[in-house]
Design a protein around this nucleic acid. Structure first.
Lengths: 170, 170
DNA sequence: TTCGTCATGTAATGGGTTACATGATTAC
DNA sequence: GTAATCATGTAACCCATTACATGACGAA
């Protein structure tokens, strides 16, 4: 699709927080073009006057699809860190279940680590915090716990979709 | 306190997501020093060998306290936008209740706007989304709704602490 | 003795937003 | 008419992270 539409779609899908700006979108498209991951066609909108600037429609090249597959097969921190997980999850429909499980589990253990760290430090310093700081802590912990539960439900749903033939490793 | 301790405290209090790095902390302290908002003293840690580098302890100047008060009295977007709200909330213990209420309400209506926008666009485009994209949407909406409820509870708690003499304005 | 923590800092790098620039089209 | 949206792009700027640099201290 073309840049403008792409932006709207992305903002709708993961537009909690900042919106994708043109200043990052269009340069990114140019970069992908140069890397030969996408190719562009100019398309006149149907029934539009010839004075209208034709839209630039992008399409993945075979090399771009390979790159996409490569990216979707990443299972390390790049897949489950805060800034990346959402976009990664949005494409789970085109990702193998094994990969999906590993990404979900990676993110979950990341969040659990955080919870443990905060809770261990909390027991030492909580007395120094005032009401509001403590409330902020509490709410933060609750949010993360909620996401952990969400992830656990998703993991269970994934697992129940196939016969369990292997116990988890690592 | 000194920079290292400050970082630990801040990371504990709002360290969901990225941690404050030295590359931003120390330059920020220098900036505040130049603006005359803080002053520094070098303090030898008690019982430490003289070979140990003394720690640099910072303290707010009167001008710095004025600036702090000014910042804490902001009630516009700078107070309730995503990146700022948490740190703002953490200092509510040193903020007037009227200000607190306005900031809480500002953030709540900001989140409600977002919910409405997404839900209106959702009704048009949901059919095109696959299972995972829809699940991401659902989870996002739920998280925001949850924060709205949290804010509402806090607002009610604030209101119940004083006799209601004025109806809300604007 | 080696690793982790304490403690402060700088330089390079990267990435994004904001503001600017342009112009047609559509809805009110 | 005029404001909002469609549509693409560039340049300046901001700001934060990453990596580097240094060195003492405490624990295993």
């Amino acid at each position: 699709m073309h840049g403008y539409e792409l932006r709207k779609r992305l903002n709708l899908m993961l537009g909690w927080g900042r919106l994708l700006s043109y200043g990052s979108l269009y340069p990114a498209l140019k970069k992908m073009l140069k890397a030969n991951w996408i190719e562009e066609r100019t398309v006149q909108k149907e029934g539009a006057l010839p004075s209208r600037r034709p839209r630039i429609v992008y399409q993945l090249t075979p090399a771009g699809e390979d790159e996409f597959v490569r990216l979707m097969s990443e299972v390390g921190p790049t897949a489950w860190e805060d800034g990346n997980f959402d976009i990664r999850f949005a494409f789970f429909g085109r990702t193998d279940m094994e990969i999906r499980l590993r990404v979900l589990e990676g993110r979950r253990s990341r969040l659990q680590e955080r919870l443990e760290k905060v809770q261990s430090q909390l027991s030492m310093t909580q007395k120094e915090m005032d009401r509001y700081a403590a409330e902020l802590q509490r709410h933060g912990v609750e949010s993360v716990e909620r996401e952990v539960k969400w992830l656990s439900d998703l993991i269970n749903a994934e697992r129940s979709q196939h016969p369990v033939d292997k116990p988890a490793q690592g």
